[in-house]
Design a protein around this nucleic acid. Sequence first.
DNA 1: ATGATATACGTGCATATACACGCATAGTTC
DNA 2: GAACTATGCGTGTATATGCACGTATATCAT
Lengths: 147, 147
Amino acid sequence: MKIPNQNPSICSCVNLRRASRAITRIYDKALEPVDLKITQYSVLANVARSGPLSSSNLARILRLDRTTLVRNLKSLEAAGFIEEHPEVTDPRERAIRITEAGRQMVEKARPLWVQAQQQVEDHLGSAALQQLTTLVTSLETLSDHIA
Amino acid sequence: MKIPNQNPSICSCVNLRRASRAITRIYDKALEPVDLKITQYSVLANVARSGPLSSSNLARILRLDRTTLVRNLKSLEAAGFIEEHPEVTDPRERAIRITEAGRQMVEKARPLWVQAQQQVEDHLGSAALQQLTTLVTSLETLSDHIA
DNA sequence: ATGATATACGTGCATATACACGCATAGTTC
DNA sequence: GAACTATGCGTGTATATGCACGTATATCAT
């Protein structure tokens, strides 16, 4: 017996996680031609834009757990898209920089990302996307408040 | 140099993933006393409600990749909250059932889940939660359409 | 009955996520 | 300058996520 797909849950968390998985599929699919996932593109584009910076600072920018970021950086470094060097001003820090190959990859991936962005905006409408930014901020505020 | 926390991204996917991580922190925190994560509670509560069913059907209900679900079930089975038995009508299927210990766990966890639900609703407002259900449906539709 | 197709299931692999530790160095206070 | 505190970093462990495969059984078409 085969059960059909299901409606949204009554649990906000479950719904948000479902939405997250769904949109990730959309973006990952769009980035498939350059063999990048949206998580990797996101990190790479941020390193490209925010210049050399430490993993702690990058984690704060991405609102991602630092130790999670450390592992995510591994694959990007293995692929030769970023490199790390000891920071002179503070020996504890390691400065993360994008490489030339990394910069080229970002350039190649950007149009695919734009396409996914457009696809989602066309389907959801810009109002929904605006509400989404509010949602993020509210939830992060609540989460920070609790922790 | 320490960089402060960041505003929402211009990328809808990144924002949704951020929101997902934030709300997961909130629910996981609420469920901490019973040592369950929201992902596990979600699966367990669904098994409890939807009675014995196959992993494929449960995956469709949860809109979760079947192979992902299979691993998630492992820890619940190891904890003794669910059990699997071969299905008589179709030897390929395995019927997943909640155990007595599982049922007790759901009972114990439910008030904590309700508390998280309430907390989020108080902070975001019911209108935002309603928009969220629309968002889930739209994104899953778009994702299905593309795939 | 046979062959094609659909469905069910599990595992290997890669990545994502985050908590709990421990170690090293910077900064602050006395 | 010594003690305390804050910050930066990486790893161990556990879970979450999904794609690519291979295997087994059901179902359907002829």
